[in-house]
């Protein structure tokens, strides 16, 4: 089973083959043996065994003496939840990743902290716009505060992810906004 997995803006080819008691998995050219157990609807426990890649001479060799060529078996607990039609949020420990499986390539979240290009600052939660700190046309620096949204009894400064210019301001001070509402565009 071959999957194209887009994760953190990179597409990786993952090949999964069922074996007797688990899965043989190849990510790009890195082969591993994985024992997977479903804990509940959202959670998988994985024991991931490295295969020593230099001695891997091909499929014929793999079946015969796999155990001896297994490296350490590392334990991971992974939580998966759906985010949109073709996207999963996959959390490995405390770190969540947005994963698209075989889906059409999605433009990276424009408000994301990394990468280049335009940014759209959106309300992270329902709240009230307390202050707009910039005007259209202003040059802004990375991490410069742009707008203050009050939610959960606290005033939260939303900042620019990268340097840029304020292209549009979509809200006025005092406005109530829903989660995801566009606030400011930066080019």
């Amino acid at each position: 089973m071959q999957y194209e997995v887009e994760i953190e803006g990179r597409v990786r080819t993952v090949i999964v083959t069922r074996t007797g008691d688990g899965f043989a998995v190849r990510v790009d050219d890195h082969a591993r043996i994985v024992d997977a157990v479903r804990i509940d609807a959202h959670v998988l426990s994985l024991l991931v065994g490295e295969l020593w890649p230099t001695h891997d001479t091909g499929p014929a060799d793999r079946g015969t003496d796999a155990r001896r060529r297994l490296g350490p078996r590392t334990s991971y607990e992974v939580a998966l939840s759906r985010a949109g039609s073709a996207q999963l949020i996959v959390s490995v420990g405390a770190t969540p990743f947005t994963v698209t499986l075989n889906g059409r390539r999605r433009a990276k979240d424009v408000a994301g902290p990394a990468g280049a290009g335009p940014q759209r600052i959106v309300a992270p939660m329902p709240g009230k716009v307390i202050r707009v700190l910039v005007q259209a046309g202003d040059a802004v620096l990375a991490r410069q505060p742009l707008v203050v949204v009050e939610a959960m009894k606290m005033e939260n400064e939303l900042r620019a992810a990268r340097d840029g210019t304020v292209a549009a301001i979509h809200v006025k001070e005092g406005a109530s906004v829903d989660a995801g509402a566009p606030l400011i565009d930066i080019t």
Binding site: M1, Y76, V78
Partner: peptide, 20 residues
């Protein structure tokens, strides 16, 4: 962790029978 997330997503898809 990123590779493990990719592996988990693919195994999850294989286990649930959803497939490309």
């Amino acid at each position: 962790a990123e590779e493990i997330a990719a592996i988990a997503a693919a195994i999850h898809a294989t286990m649930t029978g959803a497939a490309p």
